[in-house]
Amino acid sequence: MADFSYYIFCAMLLGGALVVLLSRGYVNAAMGMLCSMLGAAGLMVLMQCYFLAFVMVSVYAGSVLVLFVFVVMLIGDVKENSSIWRKIGIVGLWVVLGAFVGWVSPMLSQAAAGLSKTTEVVFLSQAKNYGLVLMTEFMLPFQIAGALLLAAMIGVMVVAKNPSRKKARRELV
Protein backbone atom coordinates (compact mmCIF):
# COMPACT_ATOMS: atom_id res chain seq x y z
CA MET A 1 0.00 0.00 0.00
CA ALA A 2 2.79 2.39 0.95
CA ASP A 3 4.69 1.39 -2.18
CA PHE A 4 1.60 1.95 -4.28
CA SER A 5 0.99 5.47 -2.95
CA TYR A 6 4.71 6.20 -3.16
CA TYR A 7 4.68 5.47 -6.89
CA ILE A 8 1.51 7.51 -7.39
CA PHE A 9 3.03 10.55 -5.66
CA CYS A 10 6.30 10.11 -7.55
CA ALA A 11 4.36 9.96 -10.81
CA MET A 12 2.54 13.17 -9.82
CA LEU A 13 5.84 14.86 -8.99
CA LEU A 14 7.73 13.84 -12.12
CA GLY A 15 4.73 14.04 -14.44
CA GLY A 16 4.02 17.56 -13.21
CA ALA A 17 7.63 18.49 -13.85
CA LEU A 18 7.39 17.10 -17.37
CA VAL A 19 4.22 19.11 -18.01
CA VAL A 20 6.03 22.26 -16.85
CA LEU A 21 8.81 21.52 -19.33
CA LEU A 22 6.68 20.57 -22.29
CA SER A 23 3.45 22.56 -22.12
CA ARG A 24 2.97 25.44 -24.51
CA GLY A 25 0.77 27.64 -22.35
CA TYR A 26 1.92 29.23 -19.11
CA VAL A 27 -1.25 28.32 -17.24
CA ASN A 28 -0.87 24.65 -18.13
CA ALA A 29 2.70 24.84 -16.89
CA ALA A 30 1.53 26.40 -13.61
CA MET A 31 -1.02 23.62 -13.15
CA GLY A 32 1.71 21.06 -13.82
CA MET A 33 3.72 22.72 -11.09
CA LEU A 34 0.71 22.49 -8.75
CA CYS A 35 0.48 18.77 -9.47
CA SER A 36 4.20 18.43 -8.83
CA MET A 37 3.98 20.25 -5.49
CA LEU A 38 1.02 18.16 -4.35
CA GLY A 39 3.06 15.06 -5.23
CA ALA A 40 5.96 16.33 -3.11
CA ALA A 41 3.58 17.05 -0.23
CA GLY A 42 2.18 13.54 -0.57
CA LEU A 43 5.69 12.08 -0.31
CA MET A 44 6.23 14.09 2.88
CA VAL A 45 2.97 12.71 4.29
CA LEU A 46 4.26 9.21 3.53
CA MET A 47 7.37 10.09 5.54
CA GLN A 48 5.02 11.20 8.37
CA CYS A 49 6.23 14.81 8.13
CA TYR A 50 2.69 16.16 8.24
CA PHE A 51 3.72 19.64 9.33
CA LEU A 52 6.17 20.12 6.47
CA ALA A 53 3.72 18.61 3.99
CA PHE A 54 0.93 21.01 4.88
CA VAL A 55 3.26 24.01 5.08
CA MET A 56 4.33 23.04 1.56
CA VAL A 57 0.70 22.93 0.39
CA SER A 58 -0.20 26.13 2.22
CA VAL A 59 2.76 28.26 1.19
CA TYR A 60 3.72 27.00 -2.26
CA ALA A 61 0.53 25.52 -3.68
CA GLY A 62 -1.86 27.83 -1.85
CA SER A 63 -0.12 31.18 -2.09
CA VAL A 64 2.98 31.35 -4.29
CA LEU A 65 1.47 29.47 -7.20
CA VAL A 66 -1.77 31.48 -6.99
CA LEU A 67 0.41 34.56 -7.39
CA PHE A 68 2.12 32.97 -10.42
CA VAL A 69 -1.23 32.24 -12.04
CA PHE A 70 -2.41 35.75 -11.16
CA VAL A 71 0.60 37.30 -12.91
CA VAL A 72 0.23 34.98 -15.90
CA MET A 73 -3.41 35.98 -16.23
CA LEU A 74 -2.52 39.68 -16.02
CA ILE A 75 0.19 39.57 -18.70
CA GLY A 76 -1.70 37.06 -20.83
CA ASP A 77 -1.11 33.43 -21.68
CA VAL A 78 1.45 33.11 -24.49
CA LYS A 79 1.55 29.97 -26.59
CA GLU A 80 5.10 29.05 -27.51
CA ASN A 81 5.53 26.89 -30.57
CA SER A 82 8.75 25.04 -29.96
CA SER A 83 10.13 22.55 -32.47
CA ILE A 84 9.90 18.79 -32.00
CA TRP A 85 13.71 18.55 -31.59
CA ARG A 86 13.64 20.98 -28.74
CA LYS A 87 10.93 18.95 -27.04
CA ILE A 88 12.90 15.75 -27.48
CA GLY A 89 15.95 17.53 -26.09
CA ILE A 90 13.97 18.68 -23.06
CA VAL A 91 12.62 15.20 -22.37
CA GLY A 92 16.14 13.82 -22.77
CA LEU A 93 17.44 16.37 -20.28
CA TRP A 94 14.61 15.44 -17.89
CA VAL A 95 15.58 11.77 -18.07
CA VAL A 96 19.32 12.43 -17.71
CA LEU A 97 18.88 14.81 -14.79
CA GLY A 98 16.44 12.42 -13.11
CA ALA A 99 18.93 9.57 -13.47
CA PHE A 100 21.72 11.80 -12.11
CA VAL A 101 19.65 12.77 -9.06
CA GLY A 102 18.70 9.12 -8.55
CA TRP A 103 22.41 8.22 -8.68
CA VAL A 104 23.59 11.03 -6.39
CA SER A 105 20.83 11.12 -3.77
CA PRO A 106 21.79 7.92 -1.87
CA MET A 107 25.33 9.30 -1.44
CA LEU A 108 23.95 12.69 -0.40
CA SER A 109 21.61 11.13 2.14
CA GLN A 110 24.47 9.03 3.52
CA ALA A 111 26.64 12.12 3.82
CA ALA A 112 23.78 13.98 5.52
CA ALA A 113 23.26 11.10 7.92
CA GLY A 114 26.98 11.26 8.74
CA LEU A 115 26.80 15.00 9.40
CA SER A 116 23.69 14.86 11.56
CA LYS A 117 24.38 14.89 15.29
CA THR A 118 21.28 13.02 16.39
CA THR A 119 21.87 9.30 16.22
CA GLU A 120 18.32 8.09 16.70
CA VAL A 121 15.62 8.78 14.14
CA VAL A 122 13.40 11.65 15.28
CA PHE A 123 10.17 12.12 13.39
CA LEU A 124 9.49 15.82 13.18
CA SER A 125 5.79 15.31 12.71
CA GLN A 126 4.90 17.44 15.69
CA ALA A 127 4.98 21.13 14.97
CA LYS A 128 6.55 21.80 18.35
CA ASN A 129 9.56 19.55 17.69
CA TYR A 130 10.01 21.20 14.35
CA GLY A 131 9.94 24.68 15.88
CA LEU A 132 12.39 23.70 18.60
CA VAL A 133 14.90 22.29 16.12
CA LEU A 134 14.47 25.32 13.88
CA MET A 135 15.08 27.73 16.74
CA THR A 136 18.08 25.90 18.24
CA GLU A 137 20.06 23.70 15.86
CA PHE A 138 19.27 25.51 12.61
CA MET A 139 19.07 29.06 13.95
CA LEU A 140 21.70 30.56 11.64
CA PRO A 141 20.33 29.25 8.31
CA PHE A 142 16.87 30.26 9.48
CA GLN A 143 17.99 33.83 10.21
CA ILE A 144 19.90 34.09 6.93
CA ALA A 145 16.87 32.90 4.96
CA GLY A 146 14.73 35.44 6.82
CA ALA A 147 17.15 38.28 6.03
CA LEU A 148 17.21 37.27 2.35
CA LEU A 149 13.42 37.28 2.19
CA LEU A 150 13.29 40.67 3.90
CA ALA A 151 15.76 42.08 1.39
CA ALA A 152 13.70 40.66 -1.47
CA MET A 153 10.55 42.18 -0.01
CA ILE A 154 12.08 45.64 0.33
CA GLY A 155 13.44 45.32 -3.21
CA VAL A 156 9.97 44.54 -4.54
CA MET A 157 8.55 47.57 -2.75
CA VAL A 158 11.22 49.84 -4.22
CA VAL A 159 10.71 48.45 -7.73
CA ALA A 160 6.94 48.54 -7.55
CA LYS A 161 6.65 52.01 -6.03
CA ASN A 162 4.48 54.16 -8.20
CA PRO A 163 6.82 56.60 -10.00
CA SER A 164 4.04 58.85 -11.21
CA ARG A 165 3.42 60.27 -7.74
CA LYS A 166 6.99 61.54 -7.42
CA LYS A 167 6.86 62.96 -10.92
CA ALA A 168 3.59 64.72 -10.20
CA ARG A 169 5.07 66.29 -7.08
CA ARG A 170 8.13 67.43 -9.03
CA GLU A 171 5.89 68.99 -11.64
CA LEU A 172 3.96 70.78 -8.92
CA VAL A 173 7.17 72.22 -7.49
Partner: peptide, 12 residues
Protein backbone atom coordinates in the same frame (compact mmCIF):
# COMPACT_ATOMS: atom_id res chain seq x y z
CA UNK B 1 -1.73 16.65 14.97
CA UNK B 2 -1.58 19.55 12.49
CA UNK B 3 -5.22 19.44 11.42
CA UNK B 4 -5.74 23.22 11.71
CA UNK B 5 -2.88 23.86 9.29
CA UNK B 6 -4.13 21.07 7.05
CA UNK B 7 -7.66 22.49 6.87
CA UNK B 8 -6.37 26.00 6.12
CA UNK B 9 -3.91 24.68 3.50
CA UNK B 10 -6.26 22.33 1.68
CA UNK B 11 -9.21 24.73 1.94
CA UNK B 12 -7.11 27.39 0.22
Amino acid sequence: DVSLLAVLAIGA
